[in-house]
Design a protein around this nucleic acid. Sequence first.
RNA 1: CGGGGUGUAGCGCAGCCCGGUAGCGCACUCGCUUUGGGAGCGAGUGGUCGCCGGUUCGAAUCCGGCCACCCCGACCA
Length: 479
Amino acid sequence: MPKETITPRGKDYSQWYLDVIAQAELADYAPVRGCMVIRPTGYAIWERIQAGLDQRIKATGHSNAYFPLFIPWSFLMKEAEHVEGFEPEVAVVTRGGGEELAEPLVARPTSEAIIGHSFAKWIHSWRDLPLLINQWANVVRWEMRPRLFLRTTEFLWQEGHTAHATEADAEEETLRILNEVYFDFAEKEMALPVLKGRKTENEKFAGALRTYCIEAMMQDGRALQAGTSHNLGQNFARAFDIKYQNADNAEDYVWTTSWGVSTRLIGALIMAHSDDEGLVCPPRLAPIQVVVVPIYKGDAERPAVLEAIDRIVSAWDGRFRVKIDDRDQMTPGFKFNEWESKGVPVRVEVGPRDIEKGTVALARRDVPGKEGKQFVPQEGLADRIADLLHDIQQSLYQKALRFREDHTRDVTSYDELKEAIETGWARAYWAGTSEDEDRIQQETRATIRAIPFDQPDAAGKCILTGKETTQVVVFGKAY
RNA sequence: CGGGGUGUAGCGCAGCCCGGUAGCGCACUCGCUUUGGGAGCGAGUGGUCGCCGGUUCGAAUCCGGCCACCCCGACCA
């Protein structure tokens, strides 16, 4: 009889989300409002995310560096739109060394300002371009309404910052990151289907020319912005005086980009794949891919079972990330449930009967309970596990993709849109203004999540204004 | 910042209306028995009742003030 420790999704989605985090020991609340402690299990997932992204970021030619947490207040003020966007949410340090500071320092909400300052010093010639930098850092944004992983006052992320000689180069960079880093990572490693597109003026980054994004659908039909990539034009180059001499010996401003994904991805992971039993982690991302649970009665059987496990696991030759749960005080049933709630993709059970018959019990997390469990021969087990992990990865992706498709509707009227966004996304022709967009948000609480790259060939009528247009956008309620 | 809710053991709660010095479940510790889907029994440990003040012989309980956190909205990765 399972204990009711996780509120079912159908009953209270928000509570379910918090329960999964508590049960899987991903994070805790900190003593400061809006801040969280990322616990070892949650941090291990973040390290896997970091590894997958870092490798892709480096493969596309970027180098890691680190810039300071504190930014002079005046730096933030240099780019008008940027300061307007971030001013309300910056934390400011006014005292240090026991004295009032001459100039207040802000804890970075993002690092365009401080990095722009360095770029101006480093870049002199067209030969210095492109400059491709990434940093792994924490940032601080004073949030009105925090939510674990999705919106916390302090969060961890990577932020890429690059400078280019031409607008075309900057645009190419912005899109390369979206495609080769973010899209690829989300779909391949996280098994998370994401919609690629451009943000509207209303939704773009404060100070950017254009913002591109990947948007994911959560199991309640709401949208989560999973990553953004900005073409900053020459806005920051002008604000921070980042100039270079081109091949014709003339002085020109560089074109910059910035792009980031954060610990919010852990929230996406939870809400995309998990179920009422707890976390479901895709195998490629899972810190532990296979957990082995020994089954035995008393001290007499224990050594033989542990020996057998040792032999079986060493035959896998390090192919998987494995945890042997040899804790003697817990019953097997308890362990099954614990690892299930922590999202470990595959469980292997080895008991006296298995030793006798040369079998093991093999259970898959995406089919919880006894239904996902079968007894299989020890022979060829490693290949079987490899296949199973691969199959789970694919099936999680397919399931999430099917969910998104089932919850995305093409709509041709405002009424249809209102109905569609109650359960998911609405795809519609759109020729409205920023004000029209605001109005829709006020009336429906939905926003334009993206102008998808995938656009129709034929024209249609704007859902609000009735004007003929070829542009299709996707509406949804966002996290 | 608006609306709602909650603060009593590590967690979840009861006790408060009707004041008399704190209890239950889980967890934790020890022992024995257990172990293929959240083990059983027994014995224990653990609390300035969010904070400050007031009323009273006496406050978790009544009164006043404050604080914190969670949930739902406006702003955001």
